Computed example of a mutant assay.
Amino acid sequence: MTEPLLKVTGVGKVFGTLRALNGVDVAVHANTFHGLIGPNGSGKSTLLKAIAGDHFADEGEVLFAGEDITTMSPAERSRRGLSLKFQITAILPELTVYDNLLLALQAHQSMWGLLLSRTRQRLDADVMDMLAQFRLTGKAQSLAGEMSHGEQQWLEIAMALALKPKLLLLDEPTGGMSPEERRVTGELLEPIRDYCALVIVEHDLDFIKDICDNLTVLDQGQVLDDGTVAEIEGSTKVQEVYTTRV
């Protein structure tokens, strides 16, 4: 089997007297969708942030595409092909949907390059392709802040994918969505397998089981179980946790 795109080994994280992560191991292969599930406070979002560089692991290492990124800044990780969308939407509400995506596509360009080039014209086709992929073409000139919650989430996912990362990290992307919006979100994510792996934290177990190939279950900062969706569904350890603690 090929080496994992993402390999988390022995990662620990401490906040004061709280050990939020304790020796966590996770492996994610290219072009696969990997879910992180577990009870509230199990360490899911903490692990996602350690992978993204929002905070650094106190122990262990994070390898991405064979390179040690454990202490790299979020910007350095982004340049290597890692992208993150947090739970709270971070669009620019006073700009149009088009301009939000344009800015995302310009993210890795230098200020000098932006001043010298006509990037709006050059990137127009890329912006319109992303709008079409996320069913937002008709909203291109609408203010991002005036869209529905679900549409804002889709816009931010599109922005996170604008530079075609190798790995996308999503933290509860369907929070606050209607059942129909959650269904559409799954449909919108499926095509990115062609170029991007996904690690997703999600409380909607039906949603995450429908789209993911593999699941890692965390409990009290440790890996309780790891495997395919079918293996996790049949795990007595996982059934006990979700029966008694969720």
Rank of each mutant, 00 (worst) to 15 (best):
V26H: 00
A90L: 07
T243G: 08
I91K: 02
M159P: 15
E59Y: 04
S42E: 02
Y195F: 10
L143E: 05
L155V: 12
F64H: 02
D210Q: 13
V14K: 09
I157R: 10
D213R: 07
A20M: 03
L215N: 09
G175L: 12
E231F: 02
L205V: 13
N100D: 11
V238T: 12
E240T: 11
A107F: 10
L167T: 00
D206I: 03
L218R: 03
M111D: 10
L18G: 14
A30R: 15
G138E: 11
H108N: 12
A125L: 03
L48C: 07
L224Q: 07
F64C: 06
A75V: 11
E146G: 10
I69P: 00
T185H: 09
L95N: 02
K166A: 15
S142A: 14
E233V: 10
V199K: 01
L82R: 00
A50T: 10
T236G: 06
L167W: 07
D99E: 13
S42N: 07
V24F: 02
G41L: 05
T70R: 01
D194W: 02
E156S: 14
S142P: 06
D171S: 04
K44H: 07
T9H: 12
F15C: 13
S148A: 06
R182P: 00
W112E: 09
A57T: 03
Q239L: 08
Y98D: 03
K237D: 11
Q133G: 08
F86I: 12
E146F: 06
L21C: 12
P39G: 10
K13A: 00
K7R: 13
S78F: 06
D124P: 05
M111F: 11
D58S: 01
T137Q: 15
L18P: 05
A158K: 10
S78H: 02
F33N: 02
E231W: 04
V28A: 03
G81F: 07
L215F: 02
F134V: 08
A30L: 15
G176K: 04
I37C: 11
G41H: 05
A50P: 09
P74Y: 04
L169E: 01
L188I: 11
Q133K: 14
G113I: 13
V8G: 01
G175M: 12
D206P: 00
G81R: 04
N31D: 08
T185A: 08
L163N: 09
D226H: 05
R135I: 09
V223C: 05
H203A: 09
A90R: 11
Q153R: 11
A140C: 10
E187Q: 13
D204S: 13
E181P: 14
K49N: 06
M147K: 06
A230S: 10
K7T: 04
G53F: 01
T9Y: 02
E240V: 04
I192Y: 01
S148Q: 05
E156V: 08
V62L: 10
L18D: 14
G35Y: 00
M147H: 08
E61A: 14
I88V: 11
K85R: 15
E181M: 11
A144P: 07
T96W: 07
T9V: 13
Q153L: 01
S42H: 04
